[in-house]
Design a protein around this nucleic acid. Structure first.
Lengths: 110, 110
DNA sequence: TCAATAGTTCGTTATTGTTGAACTACAGAA
DNA sequence: TTCTGTAGTTCAACAATAACGAACTATTGA
């Protein structure tokens, strides 16, 4: 089963986005997804490996329901993409501004 | 007594600011303080009159400890000012960007 | 079919938010 | 000075949310 809830562009709220990004772990998840600019599985985007799977899953659900990421099933894993266009359309400059201030996590920009 | 805790400019963190602003009530408090651009007592800046004093007090404490506002005692009330310069120095454009998206609360800009 | 992998859901525990009541601090009046 | 009213804070209780491990589902490959 596992139905993914994705708000439409217009249903993305400022409070929702800020609340989702107010958690350091989620901020790092989003940051690495933006710098990668492509799909990432939940495990790939995990900010630290010792985090419980259930906690990670919860963070992705929050990001998803805030409209920050789009998730779809691809085989055994979930492919997550940042909804950069939607966020930009809704709150121009917001994501860029916020992410510009947080430190690079570890991504190698291969 | 009542010692106010104000982080120094450098101790203001992005997560702290985002967490403080991720609450709709606090967002409205900050918004009205910015548009007023002057001191406001806690009661003046209250987003809705039916909110419990203790809740309001807690919101102001969070904003204060996040470095968003500066509070000082003035007679029987507390004068709160937004630390716009500090936030701007630390995270240029952040406050302006965020506040630009949230609706005007009610302030009449007298 | 069986085992392994990627995530989700559930139940428990810990942390945080909300509220009314009691408290502190100050201002003005008597 | 003392008394009263006002502005906020602190405290204790309860409610909501977050983190975790364990059990579960779905898919892949042997």
């Amino acid at each position: 089963m596992v139905q993914f809830v994705h708000p439409s562009r217009d249903d993305i709220t400022l409070e929702g986005v800020l609340a989702a990004l107010s958690d350091p772990m989620r901020l790092r998840i989003v940051k690495s997804m933006v710098s990668r600019h492509g799909c990432m599985s939940c495990t790939e985007a995990a900010p630290c490996p010792e985090m419980a799977k259930s906690t990670l899953s919860n963070h992705f659900r929050i990001l998803r329901e805030a409209g920050l990421i789009h998730t779809e099933k691809k085989g055994v894993e979930h492919r997550n993409v940042i909804r950069q266009d939607d966020i930009e359309a809704r709150f121009p400059g917001l994501l860029r501004t916020i992410l510009g201030f947080c430190d690079e996590p570890h991504q190698g920009k291969d």
